[in-house]
Amino acid sequence: MARIGIFFGTDTGRTRLIAKQIAKKLGDAADAPVNIGRVTLADFLAYDALIVGSPTLGDGELPGQSVGLNQPSWEEFLPQLADTDLSGKTIAIFGLGDQKKYPDEFVDAIGLLHDAFEDAGARMIGRWPSVGYEFKASKALDGDEFFGLALDQHLQPVLTEERIDTWLAQIKPELLP
C-alpha cells in the first residue's frame, strides 16, 4: 500500500478528476483515489497520511444523499468519526467551489471537513491563501487563509494545475516525513 490515501466526494465528477490529477502528480507515494461513499471506516483509517476532497453543494453543504446524490458520500461518512480518534493522522483538504454563483458559501466543504477531522484529533495541514479569489463568505476561511486548497473549475480552471503543484510542494514533506 502507498503511504498517502486520497478520498473524495463528488456530484458531477470534477472532484474525482482533481483527485486523479493529484494522485498522478504524487506517483507511487499515493494510492489511486477512492470515492468516500465506497469505503469503510477501516479503509480510511488504514492511512496515516490522507488527502481528502469535496465540492461544496447548494447552500454550503457536503455531498450526500440529502442533497440529491444517488450514493453515499461525505454526509454519510463523517458521522462514523464521532467516536474515532484520528490522532496520528495527517490530513490535507482540497475543495471545489464557484465564487460567482455561490459567493456566500465558497468552498464551505473545506471548512466542514476540516472541523470534523480536527475535532477527531487529526493534524491538519495544507492551508492556502485567499488572495486571488473573489467571494463574500466561506466556512473554509481562517483569517486570510483557507483551511485547504480552494479550486474554482468554473471561473479559474487555468489556475488549477499551478495551484495544485504549489500546494503539493507545500504538503508533500509533511505527508511523507
Rank of each mutant, 00 (worst) to 15 (best):
N35P: 05
I36K: 02
I36F: 03
I36A: 04
V39P: 04
V39S: 05
T40K: 11
D43L: 00
A46K: 13
Y47Q: 08
A49R: 15
L50I: 10
I51M: 00
I51A: 03
G53M: 02
G53K: 01
G53N: 03
G53C: 04
S54E: 04
T56A: 03
T56F: 04
L57V: 11
L57F: 06
G58N: 15
D59M: 14
D59I: 14
G60H: 02
G60K: 01
E61Y: 11
E61W: 06
L62R: 03
L62P: 01
L62F: 03
P63G: 04
S66P: 12
S66D: 14
V67M: 10
G68W: 08
L69R: 15
L69D: 15
N70R: 14
Q71D: 10
Q71I: 15
P72T: 10
S73T: 01
W74F: 07
E75N: 05
F77D: 00
F77Y: 05
L78K: 04
Q80G: 15
Q80I: 00
L81G: 08
A82N: 10
D83G: 12
T84D: 10
D85I: 12
L86Y: 06
L86I: 11
G88M: 12
K89G: 15
T90W: 08
T90N: 11
I91E: 04
I91W: 01
A92K: 01
I93F: 00
F94P: 00
F94N: 00
G95M: 03
G95Y: 02
G95N: 05
D98T: 07
Q99D: 11
K100N: 10
K101G: 14
Y102A: 12
P103W: 10
D104M: 14
E105K: 13
V107C: 13
A109I: 04
I110C: 13
G111V: 09
L112I: 09
H114R: 15
A116W: 02
F117S: 02
E118A: 09
D119I: 06
A120F: 09
A120G: 11
